[in-house]
């Protein structure tokens, strides 16, 4: 299944028969899907339907989970993501990720941002300083923290921490940003800030966001993929542009879900 209308336009991820199992139990049945470059794609569906598993397969974070097996094929920017010769650290630099609960490291705001930069070979102080400021500006956090960069990042509010996480991803100049329910731990005001952020990223970055909030998907997404589950196994029901999926869903499950009858 694919987002047919725009398939020809630069898919950054080409996913064929991707399936994921934990301890031998299939959590996600084979999925085939293309994801458009520089668009915002929302993955929606009830909890447990494999959205998050799907997302973590895209930057190979599944490698970190014991007894998790991924099969099928993912092409990222044309090359096989799971090829043994793929440099996974480089892939993860190019594909940033924001988690459900903001995870800042217990060090200063500045160190939080510099650490990944240094890891990827940037040593020059002036350049680091410039990139820190730019990332914080892009994440709409600069004004709030510019005078307290040396403070412990854990002293920030939840919403600020999440924006710091976004800044920390952006500082590596990724091509893709994966977001796993980035607003579910945040208050409405912080949620709006993150959504505005997603809007601004559109066009420059590919954003793939998992959300259980249909209104949010409607607000931020260009494309939508709808997952459902049957007997513990998640699967992709359909995917399409936001207008198509919400206005003319092809499957009855999608229809009842987007109209709020189920899930």
């Amino acid at each position: 299944m694919s987002i047919d209308r725009r398939e020809s336009v630069h898919p950054i991820f080409q996913i064929e028969n991707l399936s994921i199992a934990y301890r031998g139990v299939v959590a996600l049945a084979p999925v085939s899907l293309n994801l458009r470059k520089n668009a915002v794609t929302a993955l929606i569906g009830p909890s447990g339907c494999g959205k998050t598993s799907f997302l973590t397969a895209l930057n190979r974070l599944t490698d970190m989970i014991p007894e998790c097996r991924v099969s099928g094929r993912i092409r990222f920017d044309g090359s096989d993501l799971y090829d043994p010769i793929t440099n996974v650290l480089d892939v993860r630099r190019r594909i940033g990720m924001i988690f459900q609960n903001p995870t800042v490291f217990p060090m200063s705001i500045q160190r939080n941002l510099e650490l990944p930069l240094e890891e990827h070979g940037l040593k020059d102080r002036g350049e680091k300083q410039k990139r820190v400021q730019k990332a914080l500006e892009d994440a709409a956090l600069w004004e709030e923290v510019k005078d307290r960069l040396k403070e412990n990042a854990q002293s920030l509010s939840g919403g600020q921490q999440q924006r710091l996480c976004v800044a920390r991803s952006l500082i590596l100049e990724p091509e893709v940003i994966l977001m796993d329910e980035p607003c579910s731990a945040l208050d409405p005001l912080s949620t709006r800030k993150i959504e505005e952020l997603i809007h601004r990223l559109r066009g420059d970055y590919t954003v793939i966001v998992v959300t259980h909030n249909l209104a949010q998907a409607r607000r931020v997404a260009d494309d939508v993929a709808f997952f459902w589950m049957r007997e513990q196994t998640g699967f992709l029901v359909e995917a399409g542009s936001r207008e198509q999926l919400f206005a003319q869903p092809r499957h009855p499950e999608t229809q009842s879900y987007v109209n709020g009858l189920e899930g």
């Binding site: 930057n59 650290l89 991803s169």
Partner: peptide, 17 residues
């Protein structure tokens, strides 16, 4: 917390770092 390990990995940090 495990989230530190996952987050670090998602930033492309090596295990050593």
């Amino acid at each position: 917390p495990d989230s530190f390990r996952l987050t670090a990995a998602s930033l492309g940090l090596s295990r050593t770092s």
